[in-house]
Every structure is written in structure tokens, then in C-alpha cells.
Design a protein around this nucleic acid. Structure first.
Lengths: 168, 168
DNA sequence: ATATTTTTTCAGAAAATTCTGAAAATTTAA
DNA sequence: TTAAATTTTCAGAATTTTCTGAAAAAATAT
């Protein structure tokens, strides 16, 4: 298979993959393209390679920057802005975990704390099941939160190495 | 806060939460409602509690069953079908991990294997970056795959306990 | 300052996803 | 059987999400 064809397939699959993770197709595709590009690209490059509009590129690049996955780069002697993606996959994963933890897990744990204090007869099986479900989700969530925190903090090789040795 | 209100909030948030994970809102809401219901519910119960149509309930219940998160239950002396959700959160998480691993991670690893064999000059920096990116994603993916496999197989208390002790 | 290039914004258009409701199929009862 | 209850299906409707393109804003050059 030639590079052009392989690139196309990778970008397209990465986009489809993204949609299963609450990420929109175009954002994932831009990210994919930047991941495999040795040099930074401009908005025009992205428009052309992916056949999408300027506005679309601009909005999705902004999101990728907010996620901490893409950076603006200044190329001296060049008026346009360039963009580049972090290439170290462990760092990419860490960054995504960090953001999703903050955006999703933490607010959910907060909500569960509030809802657990529901009034009512603890002998009513409806109340009982509600409280039990919430408390077990919360307990699970808190453990996940701790584990993810460790992963975020850990150095790549140390962490993966240790974990793999531990479970091998 | 009263149970009715708390339930409403939990179901609604769980639905919103689901959309960040590639799960549709209604499916997540049905799941939430079944999680906090001590007794099995019928399609009519779900229609009424969530104010959604019969078709909608039916389709999403089918999906939940395919995900292994909900079961049909026969209630003797009753003509309608009843549905109930697995209440053990660890089992729920395990089941979701298992399915997503199968549906998403494994196909992606397969594709990466294929694409890595791209033809071309390994000195061309475009080819080089492409191959390197794919190979590092693959290596990361394979390690994740192994780790998830261990989690799926592991007994709840043993696993969480060990991991927490290991990282404390 | 003024002109030119580049980036950003956002209203409306397009596309994708989800939902409804009624008809068809299936199941159970009489 | 035949009838009644229940479940399933799916075409079109409604909703939500994403995208476009042109105008406004911002940045840089002359």
C-alpha cells in the first residue's frame, strides 16, 4: 500500500474511532493528520488535505488546543500560523485522561454526593436501591479517580513497566 | 431533596454523561432508571417514566441487552416482559470494558497492523513519521489491551485492593 | 495611516442522529 | 382456531450536531 492510501485510511478510521468516544469526526481527523505530519501545518493545509472549510478547521483546532493536544507554532519568516500535535502517545493519553477526569468524572462525583443525601424512609426499597446504587457508583468512581491520578502523575516508562511486570 | 426529584436529576445527568461516551442519551437514561429500580420494569413503565415512545424503548432496550447490561425477566403470572439491570457496578464496568475492547480496540489494532506495512522510502520523513506514529499507537494499544484483559478477568476485590495497595 | 493578509465568528444550511407512531409480526389466551 | 395482548420494525418526522462561507476582527506589512 502506498503512503497516500495508508494515510487516507488512517485518518478516516481515526475519525470514526473518535465518534465512539464523544469526539467529533473532524476533530479526530485533524488530530490524526497532525500526528503523522513531520512538520507543522497551516489551516490551509488542513482545509486542503481534509476537504473541509476554513471555519470548520478553525473551530476544531481551537478545541484541540483547549484539550492540550495541539499547539500553535511560529515559523520564522512566515506570516501564517502553523499547528503541530504532541507526538508522544503516552503524553497524548495522559492529557486526554486528565481532561476527561476534570470535565466528566469530577462533576459526576460531585453530583452523586449531593443526590445521596436524599430524604425518605430508608426501609422503602425504592429509596434503599437508589442510595445503594449511587453509593456504589460513587465508590467505584472515587477509586477510578485515584487510579487515574496516579497514571497522570507517573512517568511513562516507570508506570507501564511496573504495571506490566506486576500483572505479567 | 425528595426521591422523585433526586431520581429525575440522576437519570438526566446519567443521560448527559452517556453522550460523552458515544452512548445515546436515551439508552443511558433507561439504564440509569433500571439501575435504581429495585424491581424489574416493563416497556410501558419505561415509556411512562421517561416520556418516550414504545419504539424508542424497544430499540434501546435491545441495545442494552446486546451490551450485556440488561436482561429480560419472566415474572410468573404476568404476560408482559420485564427488564432488569445488573446492579453490581464492578460487573457493569467490566462488561462495558469487555465490549468496547472487542468492538473498538481490537479492530483498531488490526488496522494499524495492516497500515504499518506501507511501502516507501524509510528515509522520507513523511513515511518515517507515519510508521513511527502508527507503531507507537499500536504499542500503546497493545499494552492497554493486556491491562484491560487482566481487569476483565480479575475478581473485584482482589483487583482493586491490589492496585490500590500497589499505588498507595 | 492604509492596505493586505490571515484568523475568527456565527447565522443559516446541510448532514447525521434519534424518535415517533402505526402497521406487521409474534406470542399467549380463550 | 380465532382473538386479544404484546413486541418489533421501520419510514418519515423531529431534533441535534456539524459544517460552510462570507463578513467582521485582528494582525502584519508597506
Amino acid at each position: 500500500m502506498k503512503l497516500t492510501e495508508a494515510k487516507k485510511q488512517f485518518i478516516s478510521s481515526w475519525g470514526a474511532f473518535g465518534t465512539h468516544w464523544g469526539i467529533n469526526k473532524t476533530m479526530a481527523q485533524i488530530h490524526a493528520l497532525l500526528l503523522i505530519s513531520p512538520d507543522p501545518l497551516t489551516q490551509d493545509d488542513l482545509m486542503e488535505e481534509l476537504s473541509i472549510s476554513r471555519g470548520n478547521v478553525n473551530m476544531n483546532i481551537r478545541d484541540l488546543i483547549n484539550w492540550g493536544l495541539v499547539e500553535r507554532v511560529i515559523v520564522p519568516g512566515n506570516r501564517k500560523e502553523f499547528f503541530t500535535a504532541e507526538k508522544d502517545i503516552w503524553k497524548v493519553a495522559t492529557q486526554i485522561i486528565k481532561e476527561r477526569k476534570k470535565r466528566e468524572l469530577e462533576p459526576m462525583l460531585k453530583l452523586l454526593d449531593q443526590l445521596e443525601g436524599v430524604e425518605g424512609d430508608k426501609k422503602d426499597k425504592n429509596v434503599k436501591q437508589f442510595v445503594e446504587t449511587l453509593s456504589s457508583i460513587k465508590s467505584f468512581g472515587k477509586q477510578a479517580d485515584k487510579l487515574l491520578q496516579v497514571m497522570i502523575k507517573a512517568d511513562e516508562n516507570w508506570f507501564v513497566g511496573s504495571l506490566m511486570r506486576f500483572f505479567k
